[in-house]
Amino acid sequence: MAAIFWWVIFPYITLTIMVLGLLYRFAFRQLSWAAPSTEFFEKKWLRIGSPLFHWGIIFAFLGHVMGMVIPKGFYDFFGISDELYHAGAIIGGGIAALMVVVGLIILLIRKMKFERVRAHATFASFFSLIALIIVAGLGTYMTIIYNTTVVSYEYRTTIGPWFRSLFIFQPKYHLMESVPFVFKAHVIAAFALFAAIPFTNLIHFYTLPLGYPGRAPQQYRSRSNYRKKGL
């Protein structure tokens, strides 16, 4: 029963909260949708912490795509052995994981250390930082310590297929039962964090302006017509 809750019900509940929350905020709370920058208050610590964390998490995201989304058969087809894959995952993932955790810790210290920043830090901003540290910390432990000291865990045959099965609405929850505890904790914490996205600063990554390079540099809008076109 517990397996059904954690690997079927819980992921769907959290993803539903995320999607509905995002839609609600997009439709009715545009005025509060922004990257909540405090660069204006403090630049020196941010200069190290922010790029370290953000680039780290982008690499980590790509790593998760490689491990969770791309099936193991894909690697086998190209003749990438398990040893080679895991060596790459531990080194590449380890670097990304350290970037994320170190960046986050710098950002957390910065948030507490500088009065101007601290004065305007909200519960949500502390929550998202600390939640990220927990999720990323577990991930770092798994990648760097667990994988090298206990066993190089083959998540591509358990967590990966389970994760993909969520999106075809046939969750293979039994696959998760044999997964080591730290991996389970990492997954559960991550899904809890997904649910928090619409209510915290994390929302800004859904509007990364990737269309910017494609648009005309100058923008004109008509006072009387733009709403008609836009809405």
Binding site: P209, Y212, P217, Q218, Q219, Y220, R221, S222, R223, S224
Partner: peptide
């Protein structure tokens, strides 16, 4: 030829036609 408008990744800045 506003450079703030061209600098905005979100396209939020604009010059009013009227």
């Amino acid at each position: 030829n506003p450079s703030c408008v061209a600098s905005c990744p979100s396209g939020a800045l604009y010059k009013r036609d009227e």
